[in-house]
Write a protein that binds this DNA or RNA. Structure first.
Length: 264
DNA sequence: GCGACAG
DNA sequence: ATCTTGTCGC
């Protein structure tokens, strides 16, 4: 009998040209890497000397969605000023399949991290904030965890939308947040199974739309929440927001360059 | 059977 | 992810 997940996987593979065997390989890779996942604080020193926090994101070209720009920024946690940024223009053939985002985005991001080790080792981030979930994932191993394990770097997963898991839905979560009961701006994401996947939080006073924070790797949920609070000038934490802004800007300038050569 | 499904 | 102008408010 085919499991629910295999049915989902099958439908996706048929719609996106990704073979089911490839999906099975992906699942095996996730389950294997997941064994190295650390869900507790394991930062340099005690975390008190946390100074450089990184953020990563990827933007795609609307005209040709296979062209992407991976971006890495590093900020000084005290001043929230960018001290480093780097970009990588690549062609991405791997399709987006919910639950397997890492296979599409991790390669470029890992390349950027490796390049930084050589170029600016002194600024290398002690922690990385990722545009995508950590353990808030069907198999408890989203992009943030995937990147964290492969780069052996503490990571925090930041989702702007909830990936429905274990009975959790956007509406149920938002309902809990609005029910002034937990007048708090943070609610724990506890699934029907009893597992805690992360938290939904209003990162700023005026944002109704929550942010979904989860453990990536080598960072506890409490620490992750604190760091998100510290870095949120707006709804999205600055490291990720800056990576997003600069990534789009890079693609925009790239397009202008292509247009010039085409028009002249 | 139908809908839901990070970016 | 990407699309896309105005508009409400400090």
């Amino acid at each position: 009998m085919m499991s629910e997940e295999e049915k989902q996987v099958k439908s996706y593979s048929e719609a996106s040209t990704t073979s089911s065997v490839e999906i099975q390989n992906w699942i095996e890779a996730q389950d294997l890497l997941k064994k190295k996942l650390i869900k507790e604080d394991d930062l340099e020193g005690n975390g008190d000397d946390l100074k450089y926090v990184g953020g990563v994101d990827i933007s795609f070209l609307k005209e040709d969605s296979s062209v992407a720009c991976g971006t890495l920024v590093v900020m000084d946690l005290q001043t929230l000023q960018v001290v480093y940024d780097d970009f990588s223009l690549v062609t991405v053939q791997v399709p987006y399949v919910p639950g397997f985002l890492a296979f599409r985005e991790a390669p470029v991001l890992l390349e950027l991290l490796e390049r930084m080790k050589k170029r600016a080792p002194l600024l290398y981030p002690q922690l990385l904030m990722v545009d995508g979930n950590g353990i808030l994932h069907p198999r408890g191993f989203g992009l943030a965890s995937h990147l964290g394990v492969l780069a052996n770097l503490p990571t925090i997963g930041i989702g702007k939308n909830l990936h429905h898991v274990d009975g959790l839905t956007q509406t149920s979560v938002r309902k809990l947040l609005s029910e002034g009961k937990n007048n708090d701006s943070i609610i724990t994401l506890k699934g029907i199974s009893g597992s805690i996947w992360g938290v939904a939080m209003r990162s700023t006073v005026d944002s109704l739309k929550p942010l979904y924070v989860s453990i990536g790797h080598r960072v506890s949920l409490d620490t992750a929440i604190e760091i998100v609070k510290i870095t949120c000038k707006y709804r999205v934490p600055e490291p990720i927001r800056q990576a997003d802004i600069r990534s789009r800007e890079y693609l925009r300038k790239f397009q202008m360059g292509v247009l010039e050569r085409t028009t002249s």
